[in-house]
């Protein structure tokens, strides 16, 4: 059986089925939605970080752009949810396009400039001067389109599409060529790989995923503030989950979300600072001792993981 098909059957399909039936077994739909959201975002981050080595610290900027693209479409343009989703996704991609020149920078500068860009978008959206469009710092309410069940299902559909795209990246010539760019851009160019184009495609795919996820998020929770949609914590979570599980694989980010976000929610969030401390320590420990994530315990021994 071809590897790609095997990954779809044994990884993508079970995850999507479980996510789809989970609301029938467990009542806390908001929590389930958060899981679906992070499963998707971690894979979106994986597309750019795992495959090209470029870490978008400001990934939440694209997510927030998607959320506000959705919100403005509903509030100002009066669009129905599905059209607003398309606008949200487009907003994410547009921001991604705007930031493509950053891909000429080497990795660390990309990461910092990306974070600065996310902050800038947040500052624009939350600026009281734009209150007529974005409602500024006062937040948006989209109660007229509120549909928790339907938006959850759309979230699962986005997750399914994302996982399929990642299964393709993991098993395609294009995905392998991207990894060559990550390893050594000059050698990759000499192997005939179009370095800048490859990075651009991966980044736009990543931006599309984040924009779409942001739009679905806006729809699902329907009342939110700029601080919610541009919470840097969202970038942090997506990064830590991906690093913890193992970037550039399909199951790494999945593992990361299930284990870490699972633990996070089981213990409960009484004092957020303690979690911040633990996550910080986890990042330091990972970089020092397990820079390639949990899956590297297997890959080091020459075992291929999906």
């Amino acid at each position: 059986m071809r590897r790609g098909l095997r990954d779809v059957l044994f990884v993508v399909l079970p995850v999507v089925i479980i996510a789809a039936v989970a609301p029938l077994l467990y009542a806390n739909e908001l929590l389930l939605f958060s899981f679906v959201m992070y499963l998707t975002l971690a894979q979106g981050l994986n597309a750019i970080y795992g495959f090209t080595g470029y870490l978008p610290f400001g990934y939440v900027g694209v997510f927030g752009a998607g959320a506000y693209g959705f919100a403005i479409s509903v509030m100002i343009l009066g669009l129905p949810p599905f059209a607003a989703l398309a606008i949200g996704a487009a907003a994410g991609v547009m921001l991604g396009l705007l930031l493509t020149p950053l891909l000429r920078l080497s990795g660390a500068y990309f990461a910092i400039a990306n974070l600065a860009a996310a902050q800038a978008v947040y500052q624009v959206v939350s600026n009281p001067a734009l209150q007529d469009i974005t409602k500024g710092p006062y937040g948006v309410s989209l109660s007229e389109v509120f549909a928790p069940r339907l938006s959850y299902e759309v979230g699962v559909a986005v997750l399914a599409a994302t996982l399929l795209a990642m299964a393709w990246l993991r098993n395609s010539r294009f995905g392998l060529s991207l990894q060559a760019i990550r390893e050594d851009p000059i050698s990759a160019a000499m192997a005939g790989v179009a370095v800048v184009r490859g990075r651009t495609i991966a980044w736009l795919l990543s931006a599309l995923i984040a924009g779409l996820t942001g739009a679905v998020f806006a729809w699902h929770i329907s009342v939110f503030y700029p601080e919610t949609a541009f919470d840097i914590g969202i970038s942090i979570f997506a990064t830590v989950f991906t690093l913890f599980g193992g970037a550039a694989t399909l199951i790494g980010p999945l593992l990361g979300v299930l284990v870490l976000y699972g633990v996070y929610n089981t213990i409960g969030i009484t004092v957020p600072q303690y979690f911040q401390l633990i996550y910080g320590a986890l990042i330091v420990g990972l970089v020092l001792f397990l820079p390639d994530g949990l899956v590297s315990l297997l890959t080091r021994r020459g075992i291929r993981v999906p």
């Binding site: 010539r173 392998l176 060529s177 060559a180 990759a188 000499m190 192997a191 005939g192 790989v193 179009a194």
Partner: peptide, 8 residues
Amino acid sequence: EIAAWNGR
């Protein structure tokens, strides 16, 4: 493989 796919 990467070189073979992307090259001539």
